[in-house]
């Protein structure tokens, strides 16, 4: 693959992905506000937040580990932005995911691991802040991270395993997943199993989105913003944008894994440009649905969990649910 394409393509992808992520956060906030009976901020509010935060002074506490405190926001943003390059976006193949016989740099499994990095950077920043609130927040973030990993891995691996049964290609490649959508492979039992896996993944998405009920690392009323308590100005802005991009990317991951369908053959649009536009819009609709269900709805309808409860939800409840889904998908293959 052409080196120049990668450089410029990445820059464009991060820019476009970033803009749409922020727009989607604005829509999310507006929708939640309406569901709560409020007017809510204008949809462009995230852009204004970023603009304001960039103008503010970045204060670094005296007791902080300076280099780590400053580096953590950058690592968090870069790793979040990296997700945009590995997940298929706007109906296009993932930029670094490999397509049309060209070997890529990574697949769905890599994305699962990449998802850990922003959280690690957040926790590192929290520990480096030398504030008791941030320390508690960072501990919670680590616990949540470890609890989340298992159900997330269960649903991604089950999906890949099932697709691997019908093709010789790497089943975790997004292009392979798009060629063999899970719903067309399985029978009725497998559909139920896949729905259960989708449910597990959606709840895991909610946890990755770090909003109520899984926002205990920030938990405004408990630990005053926890992990971010000492961050301000530009550093806080980087975390803010990283969080927004991550939420968008995780939703796009759900879309790529479970709804990898294209619209243009159905509506009969030909040609690369018109079909590209149709696919891009269709992708936005799909991501919106996933985000609305896994983030907006859940955070409107629930109270914040305690970290022990959230951990239980993920490690025990959701893992068991995921395994049941896996067993159903496997049983479907045998029947």
């Amino acid at each position: 693959m052409n080196f120049v394409v990668i450089i410029f393509g990445s820059a464009l992808m991060v820019l476009v992905g970033g803009v749409f992520s922020m727009l989607y956060r604005g829509i999310d906030r507006k929708l939640v506000a309406h569901m709560q009976g409020r007017v809510g901020p204008p949809i462009v509010q995230p852009f204004r937040d970023v603009q304001k935060l960039m103008m503010k002074e970045s204060i670094i506490p005296d007791g902080a580990v300076q280099w780590l405190f400053k580096a953590a926001p950058f690592i968090c943003l870069i790793t979040s932005a990296l997700l945009l390059l590995y997940i298929p976006m706007f109906g296009q193949p993932a930029l670094l995911g490999g397509f049309d016989g060209v070997p890529g740099f990574g697949d769905a499994l890599l994305v699962v691991y990449l998802l850990i990095l922003p959280s690690l950077a957040l926790a590192a920043g929290g520990f480096a802040s030398s504030s008791p609130y941030a320390t508690v927040g960072a501990q919670r973030e680590m616990v949540l991270l470890m609890s989340l990993e298992f159900p997330l891995a269960v649903s991604v691996v089950s999906l890949g395993w099932r697709i691997g049964q019908v093709t010789a290609a790497n089943p975790f490649m997004f292009s392979t997943i798009a060629e063999h959508p899970i719903w067309s492979l399985v029978g009725p039992l497998g559909v139920i199993g896949s729905l259960i896996l989708l449910f597990a993944l959606l709840v895991a998405t909610s946890g990755k989105g770090a909003k109520v009920p899984f926002d205990m690392a920030e938990a405004e009323t408990e630990i005053a913003g926890g992990i971010l308590v000492e961050y301000s100005g530009r550093n806080l802005c980087l975390f803010y944008v990283a969080d927004i991009i991550k939420a968008f990317a995780v939703s796009a991951l759900v879309v790529a894994l479970f709804i990898p369908y294209n619209l243009s053959p159905l509506v009969g649009v030909g040609g690369p440009v018109p079909s590209g536009i149709v696919e891009g819009l269709f992708f936005l609709v799909k991501v919106f649905v996933v985000m609305f269900v896994s983030i907006s709805l859940i955070r409107t309808a629930m109270a914040r969990f305690k970290i022990s409860q959230a951990s239980w939800v993920y490690i025990i409840a959701l893992t068991v649910i995921g395994l049941v889904g896996l067993i159903l998908v496997a049983a479907d293959l045998m029947v």
Binding site: G37, T221, R304
Partner: peptide, 9 residues
């Protein structure tokens, strides 16, 4: 307890 919907209602 982070249940802002009930707070507003």
């Amino acid at each position: 307890i982070g249940f802002d919907t009930i707070f507003h209602l």
